[in-house]
Write a protein that binds this DNA or RNA. Sequence first.
RNA 1: GCGCCUGUAGCUCAACAGGAUAGAGCAACAGCCUUCUAAGCUGUAGGUUGCAGGUUCGAGCCCUGCCAGGCGCGCCA
Length: 579
Amino acid sequence: MGAGLRASEVTLKQALEQALQAALAELLKDHPDAVAPEVQLTRPKMKEHGDYAASVAMPLARLLKKSPQQIAASILEVVQWPDAVVGADIAGPGFINIRLRQASEAEALKTIMLAGESYGKQVVLADAEKVNLEFVSANPTGPMHVGHGRGAVVGDALASVLKAVGKKVHREYYINDAGVQIGVLANSVWLRMQELKGETVVFPEAAYPGEYIVRIAREVLEKHDYQQLLAMEEDERSGLIGGEAIAANMAMIRDDLNAIGIHFDHYFSEQSLHASGRVSALIDKLAADGVVYNGTLPPPKGQEVEDYTPVEQQLFRTTDFGDDVDRPLAKQDGTPTYFAADIAYHYDKYLRGFDRMIDVWGADHGGYVSRVQAAMKALTGREAQPDVLLVQMVNLTRDGKPVKMSKRAGTFVTLREVVDEVGADAVRFNFMTRRVESQLDFDLEAAKQKNDENPVYYVQYAYARIGAILRKAEDEGHAIGELDDVDVSVLTEHEEQRLVAHLLAYPEALQKAADRLEAYRVATFAMRLAADFHSFYHKHRVVTDDVVLTRARMLLIKAVGQIIRNALTVLGVSTPERM
RNA sequence: GCGCCUGUAGCUCAACAGGAUAGAGCAACAGCCUUCUAAGCUGUAGGUUGCAGGUUCGAGCCCUGCCAGGCGCGCCA
């Protein structure tokens, strides 16, 4: 702040905060050891408490050995307010309530319109922080389910939020195309192929049962000669079919992601890590660093493991870096564990020059966080990296009754089914209205209905309604015209000032969402703004005989529409002009 | 047993880094369309913020201990 900004870029709120900060410095000059608390103005909930409120006097009470009211009074004696302030008084336990000249903030509507879709956003500078945001990363063994969808939507919106505040964001999908699951996948397809060829086959419990497996089997049969496959060594055949199945599943996953408007910068293959030797190289590096040893882990606590046999393994001393127990890098058969590949993957991100990593995982991977962070600390020295967002479960219901889902049993509802039925906007917005820490109830029947159960329509309706009003106004010959000529001082109604205040809070809301990795804040912001607009709409008319007022209100609602659009765009939700 | 997450109105969730009288939607009840989109608005009712302590000017938020639910806890991913 400060030096580089032109005067016009300092918001009124910032000017007020600076005035108070200066007053505090003046007040505290006799206390060289005292640190002045940072002034952060808030919007009081009740209008009797003014337009802005500051609580700075309270925390100083102890230090100055005076009552907060006395301190607030001292602040008010020395503070030099900007012109827009018409009064300030002390209330409650020591709040300073600031009252502004009516409509004094409305000039900012012009700033909003000039900035347009970039209002609230920051420019991405050349030296901006480079963020790698990994999300979805659903196994390529079948379609994505609804839980994946939540992670997908949250990750994608967070990426947009971070980009909006000036980060360089890289969206990445980690394909777990290695490991025993791929063998199971290949075998499942192979069994279906044999079945399609008229063989009688027995499907083991471990095989994937879904209909998509049959489809893949059919495709593989079209591309490859059955007799040749039959003649192959099992490993070779499994590798070939597995490759085909992964490709088919990833094509399906990409298509499904596309259906909710999610696009990745990079799909990163786990197999490529193994093939290029990066996993074994990483293990060598760890060994050279002296954090690997051969040892035996204690049996797991709290769950019955009947056939537990202690086995000596190659272990990573993650306990030196904050983990609970040391973690195996190699399985009994000598192949690397998933963990080994995963830290090779995260280390690869580091080597690619990312300043920060953020992973969006399902809550069932919660126990995995400490070991990956420990590994990254050992490898890079960075603390608490990656940042991990654990997205809690989606409880899927149909007419209020839980839908039991199992990939094994083939009874899961795919994300695609839900998107096709409900629509991408409704899915995205619904998944964004809650904090990731909360479990999410999602009812298929309720979500299918286009009624007020879907908050997305509430916000979109406000936008469409604004469009209708502006069209009507223009039909009747009104126009906003030159911004400089619009007299916004007539916007003195309570609902109008509320809307202005709300719009001005958008950049901060966006910044806070980014700082706290909480994209849902943008959704709740949009809902509250829409609510304020609907209230305004029912109390006041935009198109009136008063030309000056009509112009000002047109500008007001156009700015509201702009911010609703900006917010929904960040969330990946559309803004239809008519509904 | 241990770790992480959660517990707020009948239901689903908010509460802006500890601030003033805890707010919305749904469900219930009562109103509002000859006037810019009723997918909307206004009002009524609904609360010991799981329980018990603690920290301080002030706690839904921080600390401790319980209670309840979810997720996880060797060589699956």
